[in-house]
Structures are given as structure tokens and as C-alpha cells.
Design a protein around this nucleic acid. Structure first.
Length: 493
RNA sequence: CGCGGGGUAGAGCAGUUGGCAGCUCGGCAGGCCCAUAACCUGCAGGUCGUGGGUUCAAAUCCCACCCCCGCAACCA
């Protein structure tokens, strides 16, 4: 594992549900996608990389939230969707497209996809879509189906009313006919589920048996959504509508982007939507006779200071707060250097200032200062570096990025920073600088040149993570006269 | 009940195919004077949850058990 990329790279985040503001979890997925996109743009060319994110904007909850605010669902989704766009801009995210499920370009294609699904048969010869009764508890107050587990004393907690047992006809997707095919593709890694623990979890789910899923709901239970053409009383339920964004954004089936970029090289998500992406989504693609994505990469949830992040606990961390405090690049660094992709990790917000001072102020920022100051003072800012182009830049970060091990990738860069600090202490350039001896003068030039090369290597490797910082350092060290920066790269907090 | 994740130094974590227990922060003691009170070196600190087993060799593989977190909602 993980990513094997030749001539093009298509990466997606989930489309985020607009029921609430962006938080650090959304930000993490998006930051990871951004790092990979930047990395591959550097490697295979900007025009060969496509990075998609967006928002999922239909459904009963959105309609409800809009009603609470007394505005139309469209207006409501416009607002929240914009918050996501702003958040990504503030984090300097470089997505190539941002798709909204309420856009007509999406809806038109979803209608086509639904019609296609309605027309085709499964490999076993059954209709892919079939109509059957959906039975459940319905709360009139909420105007939606409610799970038994949501009830308090048998009543809807919001309306303090007993729900009614309601039957309605819905359209279902014949998942059962695809499970064994999907299972085989997952087992053989033709469809790679990463990390392995998640792959095993999915295979376990298949073994337990997954019921067919509904692709439509009645208009009264899902008032805000895409109509089914062949059944006027029904609207598309979330799965087909939301999941198909990954191809509608590419203008499936005829679009140039679709031809060039599908299948996706990697689709990122958190555990909560594992089942939908590893089973429903491949099944839909198989039914449409579309190739499956290559890798589905699943990351864990954050806990905040050891607790689950939740609105009711009031410990939700929003990316904008961090950006305001640290700026986009440092925020990305702090999040990626603390969180391991595959597993659940804890974010200790009160550790962020320490980490900032230790790694960025004392580490990278200080190193740039001490090196540039010496070059400025001892050599009048002039140093001859033989062909920067030809030095080896490889310090292991590439492999780590390709394996989604961002924490380790950053660690390797910081190991280089520390090595350089150690070398400076051993070489003692300030002693060499005082010597009149020609040999010492030569050595001074050579060690300072070595440090500049180190800064060069560090900057190049840092680019996918902190491209502005990398650019700043490169500008400083490639100037005709090297000078210690007037203001530190990272001011102490 | 079941499913999933986890228990490694004071804190947070890494340990890929079994081969000398590591990293970051913090603590202590030195050093340095280029640097943002920054930087470097050394030291202290661990029965790797418990009990068995396999093996020349186990944090790692096998069995049993104990403890913690998630499997409502918001939601990546």
C-alpha cells in the first residue's frame, strides 16, 4: 500500500452534510486530500490531478433545520455550503471542484443514473430496483421515521408523542445480488480497503448479511430532494443522490473529466460512512457497469482531550478558530502531526501551543534564523551552492505520504531539522569564522553550504504540507544575498 | 450477548516479516554563544494490562482472562 499512481490522480473527500458547520473532522479529511493532491501535482503535473470535495444538501434534516430558521431549504443550504467553502479557503485547500447536490449539473445526472438503474438487471437476472414496503415508526411531529432506539419511554423525545407504525412503499436496491462480487473484489484488493482492519470489518459485515437499501422515500418523509421520474410520490433517498457526486462532478458519462479521471485513485472518508462507501457505492457502480474506485481509505474519529467530540458536550473544534490563532499552514501541521490516519486519535488542544513552539518556533524557524544569520555575517550573505538541482531530495517523506502516514512523513522532515542543528553544534562555524587560516575559511564555506542545502531539502519535502512556508524559505536561501529574515518565520507565542 | 478499537517511561504515542524496548514533550545535570531565553550532549524513568503456551528468541504468534473507549444523537 498504498497509492500507485501513473499518469493521473483523482482524489475525493466525502461531500459533507450541511446540517452543521465545518469542524475539525471535516477539516482533517480535507487537509489529507489536499496534501495528497499537492504531492501528486508536484509529481505528475498539475493537469493530471483532480481533487473534488463538496456538500450533501438534501434530506429531511436539512428541510427541518431550514424550517427552524424560517428560511427556504435552498437558502439554508446556500449559507452552510458557503461556510464550508470559506473554511477550505481559509485553510488554503486546493480543491479543483466543489460540488453541491442541489446544483442542476448534479441533479440532472442523478436523474439519468436513477433511470438507468431502473432499467437494468442484476447479474442474477433480477431488477436492480424493486418496490416494497418500508415499515417503521413515524413521528407526526417530526414528520419523519424514527428508530426505536431514539425513543424515550416509547415516545419521541422532541415531541413527547408516541410514534405511529407506518408502512410506505419505497424503491429498494437489490444489494444482495452484488455482495459476493464485491466481497471477492475486496478480498483480492482489486477494491482496496485501507487500513486492513477496516477491510476485515467490511468483510465481517458482509458475512453478517447486509439488507438491501432503499433508494427512495415518500415526499412527505423526505420533502427536500430529487424526484423519481417514474414514481411521482417518491424522492431519491440519500444513497444514490449523494454517492454519485463522485461521478456527476466529472460530468458522467460523456464528460472529458470523466473520461480522463475515473476511476478514482483514492476516496477518503471517516469510519461513519464506511458501509455506504464500501458496499452501497460499489454496488451502484457495478449495476451501472462503471469501474470501481481503486482505494477507499478510512480514517478514525477524533477525540478531543480524551472525550468524544459532540455538540452536546460542547467540545467541537472548528477549523476557523485554529486558523485564526495559527494561520492555515500551522493548523495543517498541528493536525497532521498529531493524528494517525488509520486509528482513532486524541487531539489535545491545550498541547497545540507547546507543539507550535517546540516544532515550528524552536525547530524550523530557529534553524532558518541561525543559518541565514551566519551566512549573512560571516560571508556577507554570499555563498556559492553547486547545482541544487542535482542533490538528492529523498529523505523518505515520499514513501510515507504515499502510505498516508503523514505523521511519519513530517517526522522525517523534522529529523532532518534536528540533524542539521546537531551538525551546526559540532562544526562550530562561529569558531571557524574567527580563524584566519585558509583551511578554516574553506571549511566554513563548505559547512554553511551544507546547511543551506539542508534547508533546501527540508523546504522541498515540506511543500505538500506547508507550501507557503517552503516558498518563503526557498526565496530566502536562493536570494543573491542571503539575509536573516527581518521577522521570524514563526513568532513565539 | 455480540461487533470494532485500545491497554508500552510522569504525559502523549511508534514499534512493519518474532531478533538488544524506542520517539516527542516534561524532569535532572552539563555544554554552546550562530540563533526566536532558542540549540547540542548526557542521565533518570518501563514486571510492554494479567496468567499460560509455542520458540534458541515474544511488545510482536496462539489460548484464556481483566480493564478502558465506541457501536444513541450531532458527525469526518
Amino acid at each position: 500500500m498504498v497509492t500507485k499512481v501513473k499518469n493521473k490522480f483523482y482524489i475525493t473527500t466525502p461531500i459533507y452534510y450541511v446540517n452543521d458547520q465545518p469542524h475539525i473532522g471535516h477539516a482533517y479529511t480535507t487537509i489529507v486530500a489536499d496534501v495528497l493532491a499537492r504531492y501528486y501535482r508536484q509529481k505528475i503535473g498539475k493537469e493530471n490531478v483532480y481533487f473534488l470535495t463538496g456538500t450533501d444538501e438534501h434530506g429531511a434534516k436539512v428541510a427541518e433545520s431550514a424550517a427552524l430558521k424560517n428560511i427556504s431549504p435552498q437558502k439554508f443550504t446556500d449559507q452552510i455550503s458557503q461556510q464550508f467553502k470559506d473554511a477550505w479557503q481559509n485553510l488554503a485547500i486546493t480543491n479543483d471542484d466543489f460540488i453541491r447536490t442541489t446544483e442542476s449539473r448534479h441533479q440532472k445526472i442523478v436523474v439519468n443514473i436513477l433511470n438507468k438503474l431502473k432499467a437494468v438487471k442484476t447479474p442474477a437476472g433480477n431488477e436492480v430496483l424493486y418496490e416494497t414496503d418500508y415499515e417503521g415508526l413515524y413521528c407526526v411531529g417530526c414528520e419523519k421515521f424514527i428508530l426505536e432506539s431514539e425513543l424515550v419511554d416509547g415516545k419521541c423525545p422532541d415531541h413527547n408523542k408516541e410514534p405511529e407504525q407506518v408502512k410506505e412503499k419505497n424503491w429498494f436496491f437489490k444489494l444482495a445480488d452484488y455482495l459476493s462480487i464485491i466481497q471477492q473484489k475486496i478480498e483480492s484488493d482489486e477494491l482496496t480497503i485501507y487500513p486492513k482492519a477496516r477491510k476485515n470489518e467490511v468483510l465481517g459485515l458482509i458475512k453478517q448479511g447486509i439488507p438491501d437499501f432503499s433508494i427512495s422515500r415518500s415526499k412527505k418523509s423526505v420533502p427536500w430532494g430529487i424526484d423519481l421520474l417514474w414514481d411521482k410520490n417518491q424522492k431519491a433517498y440519500v444513497w444514490v443522490d449523494a454517492l454519485s457526486n463522485y461521478i456527476t462532478a466529472l460530468d458522467y458519462p460523456k464528460g472529458k473529466l470523466y473520461q480522463k479521471f475515473w476511476p478514482a485513485d483514492i476516496q477518503l472518508m471517516a469510519v461513519d460512512i464506511l458501509k455506504f462507501h464500501t458496499l452501497y457505492w460499489p454496488a451502484i457502480l457495478l449495476a451501472l457497469d462503471i469501474p470501481l474506485p481503486k482505494i477507499l481509505a478510512i480514517h478514525g474519529f477524533f477525540t478531543i482531550n480524551g472525550q468524544k467530540m459532540s455538540k452536546s458536550l460542547g467540545n467541537v473544534v472548528h477549523p476557523d478558530e485554529l486558523v485564526k490563532e495559527y494561520g492555515a499552514e500551522v493548523t495543517k501541521y498541528l493536525i497532521l502531526s498529531q493524528f494517525s490516519f488509520g486509528s482513532e486519535s486524541d487531539i489535545k488542544v491545550e498541547e497545540f501551543p507547546n507543539k507550535y513552539n517546540a516544532d515550528l518556533v524552536n525547530g524550523l524557524g530557529n534553524l532558518v534564523n541561525r543559518i541565514t544569520k551566519m551566512v549573512e555575517e560571516y560571508l556577507k550573505g554570499k555563498i556559492k551552492i553547486d547545482d541544487l538541482e542535482n542533490i538528492s531530495l529523498k529523505i523518505g517523506t515520499e514513501e510515507m505520504i504515499e502510505q498516508l502516514n503523514f505523521k511519519e512523513a513530517l517526522f522525517k522532515i523534522w529529523a532532518r531539522i534536528q540533524d542539521c542543528d546537531t551538525a551546526i553544534d559540532q562544526d562550530k562555524p562561529w569558531i571557524l569564522a574567527k580563524s584566519k587560516n585558509i583551511k578554516d575559511q574553506e571549511k566554513l564555506k563548505s559547512v554553511l553550504g551544507k546547511y543551506i542545502k539542508d534547508l533546501y531539502i527540508i523546504s522541498i519535502n515540506l511543500k505538500p504540507f506547508m507550501s507557503e512556508t517552503a516558498a518563503k524559505i526557498l526565496k530566502i536561501i536562493t536570494a543573491s544575498k542571503i539575509k536573516k529574515p527581518a521577522t521570524p518565520l514563526f513568532p513565539r507565542k
